[in-house]
Design a binder for these strands. Structure first.
Lengths: 324, 324
DNA sequence: AATCGGATTGAACATACGTGCAAGGAGCCC
DNA sequence: GGGCTCCTTGCACGTATGTTCAATCCGATT
């Protein structure tokens, strides 16, 4: 049984390691490294890319002491959470914004997730963006578990969600636990029945003991429609009911109001996402938000105490600390 | 009292931090960053240099699993120490060799040294080379303590040694404890008398409880003469006596033989360096060696169990694992 | 207020770097 | 063994980056 020690790959990685040493520790030029490795400069360039992509080289930004920016301090003081404000120029559009916040999260995630841990993962455009950029890190005995179902009337959702899950899994060398159910059941009774099944309850157990939850926010009633609302998951009537109930957002297809409350929202009874009382027991709950359209949703999630660590673009962060 | 929060510097560092985020976390080009920061591309280049030099950006090379190279494994198995083999082409001369090993050590040192620690520092060309390249890291309540005196018949040695010490001190924000004595006393009795002085014994106490010792090796009887032997520290007669006693090297001006023994070497009675029995109590003893001329000295130091962590250039490492 | 020295800036230049491309190899199937 | 694809390599090109230099700014000093 070969681990990742197949001779070809190992050769390449060994060279990449040496090249990384020479480049990052000894400040040699790629040309000089090429000579030492008896190859061409281009190959060295590629080796170094490989080293960075595979997480062989790890670049961290330190926050010596003063680091928390003014904004971060304000957010932390006001909401009792850890804040990471991602600098994005105000002129950027929402797509760039999401991409850049996601990239920052993807690069830093390895500092949170480690061996023997379990991480819960939502799905959606935010999670998708993150998954495409994660810097890999080898872990052992770790689990990635899907937080909520992704099926709808048209598809099982297995393709989209499992693509995301899979990227997380391979990046961390973790076991992946899929949750092959629809996002919402038609009948609450189906959910209750299924929840008693051993195969499902095993997964719910894992959610209950996860160390990290990672999720974006849905914002049903703002400019950009979240994936949940565009993808055929909800009927118009259901959507209207959410509005009537005063819903401002969702985490893993579980909805809440501006004050953070979620009681009496009918759709939650049929949702497959984790109940907030469960979610709040997770030690680290990382929320990733990009774009001011999610501001109301963010405020609600904060009011509901769903977040311990927030990644947010600069302009949304500024809006957040302004008077509500 | 201003810490490092003087407004000008803080502005610069804040920009550097942002630039580092944008460059290393979001893969923007310097041009794009310049626009966001309303400055020129050159300034961004300088900001990023600044960020790297000040340790604001930390680049680490991971050793995922297989990392210990063959050579490192061999050394570790044979001598029960941790080995870091620095890749240096065989064609490099001894000066390059030292420079490159020192650079690697300087970059990685921050991973060993932290707040509330005490590190003992030798002096010499190796330590000098390292000191010129250390990547800074802010620590609190930490100490840098000089291991052995640096004075000789000509100078107090304060200039040279304290320059080295000082660079370590400022790089880590640590208190610096100099040791203003000659490298060797003329009369052992002077040493004993001085060693009872409270000012000196306070420093010896600190040496006794240090967490890390960092030193190069002296090799009196090989091609390149160590600083100790060229700088007027020893008279010819003393030098000859070392040869007669079978000495192969020294650590912080304390000498040893090929088998690691140090008993009965007269000069050690007059040396100001730490007794090996004291040194061996230090949990981490980092030795930096470059150049095959130090091979015999290295073998002796290993036999004397003076080393827990070894940094060595590739070709010397190869020579080390060959049959003695 | 004038002058000086040192630090900072952007333009221009010289390198260093990333990447598309065609050529060469290594496996694999026929 | 020939021919196929897929992967890797080095070259060449265009772009990105580091660095020098003259101009400018800033603060301190006279």
């Amino acid at each position: 049984m070969t681990f990742d020690t197949d001779p070809a790959q190992s050769d390449r990685s060994r060279d990449a390691l040496t090249a990384a040493h020479l480049y990052y520790m000894q400040d040699l030029t790629m040309d000089a490294i090429a000579q030492e490795l008896h190859t061409s400069r281009s190959s060295v360039s590629r080796l170094l890319s490989h080293a960075r992509e595979t997480g062989l080289v790890d670049i961290q930004i330190k926050s010596p002491l003063d680091a928390p920016s003014h904004l971060e301090q304000q957010i932390e003081a006001r909401f009792q959470i850890t804040a990471h404000v991602v600098p994005v120029p105000d002129s950027a559009n929402d797509v760039d914004r999401l991409e850049r916040v996601a990239l920052s999260v993807a690069r830093i995630l390895g500092q949170y997730f480690d061996s023997n841990m379990t991480m819960g993962i939502a799905w959606g455009s935010t999670m998708n963006a993150i998954s495409r950029h994660i810097t890999p890190k080898q872990t052992h005995n770790s689990q990635i578990v899907q937080l909520n179902g992704a099926g709808n009337m048209r598809t099982t959702g297995l393709g989209y969600a499992s693509e995301i899950l899979g990227r997380f899994g391979t990046a961390f060398g973790a076991h992946v636990q899929q949750f092959p159910v629809p996002a919402f059941f038609d009948d609450p009774a189906t959910k209750q029945a299924l929840w008693r099944e051993r195969s499902v309850s095993r997964l719910l157990e894992m959610q209950a003991i996860m160390d990290i939850a990672l999720f974006g926010l849905g914002s049903p009633f703002s400019g950009v429609v979240s994936r949940v609302y565009a993808g055929g998951y909800l009927e118009q009537a259901e959507f209207d009911a959410l509005g009537a109930a005063g819903v401002v957002g969702d985490v893993a297809t579980v909805f809440y109001r501006a004050d953070g409350s979620a009681d009496g929202i009918a759709l939650n009874e049929r949702s497959t996402g984790p109940d907030f009382t469960v979610l709040r027991r997770t030690p680290r709950r990382i929320c990733v938000v990009a774009g001011r359209s999610k501001l109301a949703s963010l405020r609600g999630a904060l009011a509901a105490s769903l977040i311990t660590d927030l990644f947010v673009d600069e302009s949304t962060a500024r809006a957040l600390v302004e008077a509500p």
